[in-house]
């Protein structure tokens, strides 16, 4: 199976970052033992025994990371799309400080920590790629903090759309100016610290402004420049490569 078509093709490309990984490192990724599970929508992705001994790679579908308050309210911390490693931190912090859940039905590959460590010990390029992943994840959280703290609701939504579009585009899941949008208004509310009623209102505003359209679980970005302007979006923090 060609690497680009394998479940780990996405991962190899992702870990490659600016420069493709050496062939031997790519082969090692392709040879990873993995458990692949299909998980239905809106389910928790749980670790057996409460401690992580695997890292997961999203192969298909959307997932999120979240933290809950005791009164039941939830803050979504990040959304994850194919190619993402949402819990790479568990390699060194196996006791989870956040929850992971599927948004849509997802295919998730679980790779044993021992194998991940072996990879990073044997291939410096992979060790560097893991570092890079964790740092980009931190950069993304920083951008979210700024958004949550300082953008108004319309700008927060626009910023999230810009981010998700570019991340999906990087893994080939966009179609021209449109992309799948499985998130519901309550998901936006939980990610952006807003009420769903206000999200509903702001989505209408963005539609009326001719910036986006949202139907049949797809987001159409009618005017990318305008969306970026609303969001005050600077894609640098994503550190994506073309």
């Amino acid at each position: 199976m060609a690497l680009s078509k394998s479940p780990f093709g996405l991962l190899a490309r992702r870990l490659g970052g600016d420069a493709p990984l050496p062939v031997a490192a790519e082969r090692a990724i392709l040879g990873l033992p993995l458990i692949i599970r299909t998980i239905e929508a809106s389910r928790d992705i749980k670790y057996e025994g409460g401690t992580a001994d695997h890292c997961c790679v999203i192969l298909d579908g959307w997932t999120c990371c979240y933290q809950s308050l005791t009164d039941g309210r939830c803050q979504i911390l990040s959304f994850h799309v194919p190619g993402d490693l949402p819990d790479l931190q568990s390699l060194y912090l196996p006791s989870p400080d956040l929850g992971m859940a599927t948004v849509t039905r997802s295919i998730v590959a679980f790779v044993p920590h021992a194998e991940m460590r072996k990879l990073s010990d044997q291939y410096p390029a992979i060790a560097q790629a893991f570092w890079r992943e964790v740092l980009v994840s931190a950069a993304t959280h920083r951008a979210w903090i700024t958004s949550l703290g300082r953008r108004d609701a319309r700008q927060k939504l626009a910023h999230l759309f810009c981010e998700l579009y570019l991340r999906l585009k990087a893994v080939g899941f966009t179609d021209g100016n449109s992309m799948p949008m499985p998130l519901r208004q309550t998901d936006f509310a939980d990610a952006l610290g807003l009420t769903s009623v206000h999200v509903n209102r702001m989505l209408k505003t963005l539609r009326e402004e001719g910036v986006i359209d949202l139907y049949a679980r797809r987001l159409v970005i009618s005017d990318w420049e305008a969306l970026c302007a609303v969001a005050d979006f600077n894609p640098k923090y994503l550190h994506l490569t073309d």
Partner: peptide
């Protein structure tokens, strides 16, 4: 601004609470 999309709630009470809680959101913006 009239809403043509709507939102699904378990019951009218929960929906009314969300409407009420949305007011500070809206004023903030």
């Amino acid at each position: 601004v009239s809403d043509d999309v709507g939102l699904v709630f378990d019951d009218a009470h929960t929906a009314s609470q969300e409407a009420l809680r949305s007011l500070p959101d809206m004023v903030k913006d």
